[in-house]
Design a protein around this nucleic acid. Structure first.
Length: 309
DNA sequence: TAACAGGAAAATT
DNA sequence: AATTTTCCTGTTA
């Protein structure tokens, strides 16, 4: 795992570089990115209307900002190992990267991305719980702001800058430019600002699920559960915390938050009493229909589309 | 304890 | 009629 792979361009320990053009397109201001490749690659397969522009900036900065000494490279596998200590290599080509390096572009990159999105959002979620603050920085009280600063400083080993932002509420904080951040906190102000950006993008992409519909494609027929699941899987930036691909090519996916996925399904079908017990029963109906099955190595909350595309 | 497997039947379209 | 929901008994990790 330690060896850098050509496909994934592990630039330096702790800095996994996603396609550099992302940085250009979004004008993200990260000096750490020296590599400037002209290659082009679409960031996300989903329709263009959504806030992914902000999001790509958000990943990049997340990467470059990730602290210390190679911990990041180790972090992706480690994070998945949390739940399934022995993830099959074939289900996780991300780690399989030293092989050939040729095929490892489009698809694997996509997988890495959606995986990363999930991780980032999960991190934010846990931070929210830990600090007892909302995900949306706009709602923060001055106290919340201080908590967030403290936590971020700690996470990323930044010099303390809390008192430079005293008395500031979330609204004011969000309104501040990077320049203003740097004025208040010459050391690490830029990093703090970039992090705030991450939180902002993450919480705007969240509006989608809170009460809004999952998709506006009201095309007559009632939607099937398997279609719904694919819809969610298509939008990792919104739903990556709840459900994500383990191996998109093979159609293997994992439900990370069964309660939330069930809730969303209930919203879509106007079935407020929906829960994972019932949702999973519906999935099981697909077994004999040959639409979804359990993967060869059966794991909790992991299913596989029989005909992936 | 939560996920899993499926039978049975009601409900929804 | 097809599909999903609801409820259920029992098993597995």
């Amino acid at each position: 795992m330690g060896s850098a792979s050509p496909g994934l361009s592990v630039v330096s320990p702790g800095c996994l570089l996603l396609s550099p053009d992302v940085a250009l397109r979004t004008g993200v201001e990260k000096p750490a990115v020296e590599t400037v490749g002209p290659e082009k690659r679409e960031w996300s397969p989903s329709p263009p209307a959504t806030p992914e522009q902000g999001l790509s900036a958000f990943y990049l900065s997340y990467f470059n900002m990730y602290p210390e000494d190679g911990s990041w490279v180790a972090k992706v596998p480690a994070a998945s190992a949390r739940e399934e200590p022995l993830e099959e290599p074939e289900q996780c080509p991300v780690i399989d990267s030293q092989a050939s390096g040729s095929s490892l572009d489009e698809h694997s990159l996509e997988q890495v991305q959606s995986m990363v999105v999930g991780e980032v959002l999960k991190d934010i979620e846990t931070a929210c719980k830990l600090l007892n603050i909302t995900a949306d920085p706009g709602d923060w009280s001055p106290g919340n702001v201080q908590k967030w600063l403290l936590w971020t400083e700690h996470q990323y080993r930044l010099p303390p800058a809390g008192k430079a932002f005293q008395e500031l509420g979330g609204k004011e904080l969000c309104a501040m430019s990077e320049e203003q951040f740097r004025q208040r906190a010459p050391l690490g102000g830029d990093v703090l600002h970039a992090h705030l950006d991450i939180w902002k993008s993450a919480s705007t992409s969240e509006e989608g699920w809170t009460d809004g519909e999952v998709d506006s494609s009201c095309s007559g027929q009632p939607i099937h559960l398997w279609q719904f699941l694919k819809e969610l899987l298509l939008k990792p930036h919104s739903y990556g915390r709840f459900i994500r691909w383990l191996n998109k090519e093979k159609g293997i996916f994992k439900i990370e938050d069964s309660a939330q996925v069930a809730r969303l399904w209930g919203v879509r079908k106007n079935r407020p009493a929906m829960n994972y017990d019932k949702l999973s029963r519906s999935i099981r109906q697909y077994y004999k229909k040959g639409i979804i099955r359990k993967p060869d190595i059966s794991q909790r909350l992991v299913y596989q589309f029989v005909h992936p595309v």
